[in-house]
Design a protein around this nucleic acid. Structure first.
Lengths: 165, 165
DNA sequence: CTGGTAGTTGAAGTTAGCTTTAAGTCAAGA
DNA sequence: TCTTGACTTAAAGCTAACTTCAACTACCAG
């Protein structure tokens, strides 16, 4: 046991679900900070866990780390953020999710008619409109928000690499 | 004008919306093939455009290039694919899209309650469940399919790099 | 035949978001 | 005090999906 109530990287990793290497990476990127022991090891305060929860949530919603960093930078400096602070940050996600759902639904409905007509025509099909964005006026044709990939594993947090056990 | 009805890379690029470099890349990866002139330049038949439409559509739905390649490999060899062939390939996308919409909707609804309660608790909040996947039993807690990113630009196909004009 | 546009190749570069490795240091229970 | 496991760093590596570069060649209108 530690003599203080500070957490080591290992503990934070275990309790947050992030790999220790990810925590160090986040620190380098300015998303996190930690106190150090005299020997140079990281010691986290427990509120880092809430911050990490926010980060994971934001990533789940689709924010890039840069965007997360920008959001975190809006937290009031000095004092520990309150519930209200966190809530404020995440309020904008609602719109984002709504947009994403709308885009996906449009795509699915477009797919339905595509399957019906068998078209897949380059000019007309809602599923594969070419890059000629200006031509988009009509009812179909919603591009996906881009980069939507389902992991092979059932449900893990988005690590690009397979994790060795 | 060309003497035949074959298309150059440039023409295919213009008409499909893919960059010429992407077309060459796809060829290297086995998704495409092209005839060659005596001088070694590529000449595409017009049905390549439908194939490319399929590829873009599949990418829009969220398939990786590997998955697209696998799907294309199921096309009947020898003869030119019919509408029915293409339709068969894209039928499975419907399920995929349904799943993605379900996951997003669950996340949004979870967010609603999160904003209500201001929790963002590491253990309980549906928005940021930790990696402890085994613990997932209850009603909340749907991870996103992972990697859902909205481009800064309004609507372009998913090029990871900013395109210089 | 000539000139300019368009095409060719292989190799290296890009981006995000981490992980892995190597070589070494710290912390703490026995 | 010793030992073992956890920790430290910088640097390199990884993946997908391309793009960019350099050096060169082909095509075709005039």
């Amino acid at each position: 046991m530690l003599s203080t109530d500070l957490l080591t990287v290992g503990e934070v990793a275990r309790r947050s679900g992030f790999a220790a290497s990810a925590l160090r990476y986040y620190e380098r990127e300015g998303l996190l900070s930690a106190a150090r022991t005299s020997g140079g090891q990281r010691r986290y305060e427990r509120h880092i866990l809430r911050r990490l929860a926010f980060i994971r949530a934001a990533r789940n919603v689709g924010l890039s780390l840069d965007e997360v960093a920008a959001a975190l930078a809006e937290l009031p400096g000095g004092r520990t953020p309150t519930k209200a602070d966190w809530t404020k940050l995440s309020r904008g996600w609602r719109t984002r999710l709504d947009d994403q759902i709308t885009a996906l639904t449009a795509l699915r409905d477009g797919l339905d008619s595509c399957i019906g007509c068998g078209c897949l025509s380059l000019q007309l099909c809602a599923m594969s409109n070419p890059a000629d964005v200006a031509a988009r006026k009509g009812p179909g044709a919603a591009y996906l928000p881009a980069r939507l990939r389902e992991p092979t594993e059932p449900a893990r947090h988005p690590h690009p690499h397979p994790q060795r056990p």
